[in-house]
Amino acid sequence: MTQLDVLSPVPGRIIELAEVPDPVFAQALVGPGLAVDPVRTGPVTAVAPVAGRLVKLHPHAFVVQTDDGAGVLTHLGIDTVQLAGEGFELHVTEGDEVAAGDAVVTWDPAAVETSGRSPVVPVIALEATAGDLTGQRPAGPVDAGDALFTWAR
C-alpha cells in the first residue's frame, strides 16, 4: 500500500466538504476530501495537488491522475462552469504530465465571488472512501503546496 500526500492547490482556509454549498461535494458523491476557501487578494495560481497526468482540464476544474491510477479533482469555485472559462488562464494542456505544485490555472477568487458564486475549492479523492483518507489538515489557514490529507492506496 502506498501513501499519497494530496497538497492544497490554493492558499486560503480549510473547510469541511460538508460546508461546501453544493450537494455533490457536500455529500461526497464523487469522493471524500477537503475544501479550501481561497484568499481574496487578487489573482491566485492553482497548483497540481499531486504528481501525474492531467486527464481532465477545464478552465474551472481539473483532474490529475497518478501513475497508479489515483485521480484527484480540484474544482475552482462552485457553479463556475457557467463562467465558460472567462477569468481563468490555463498554464498547461490536457494530457500534460505535472509535478505536485506545478502551476495549472490562474484565476481570481474575489471576481468569482463578485459574480455571485462561491469561490470555495473542493479537492476530491475520486472514488475513494472516507476511510482511505488520513491526516486531514484541521480547519484554519493553509498555503498552496501544504499537505491537505494522505490517501492510502
Partner: peptide, 13 residues
Amino acid sequence: ADNIVEIEPCATR
C-alpha cells in the same frame, strides 16, 4: 431523447 431539453457537462455531472 424526446424528454431532453438540454444536456450540459460539468466537471462532475
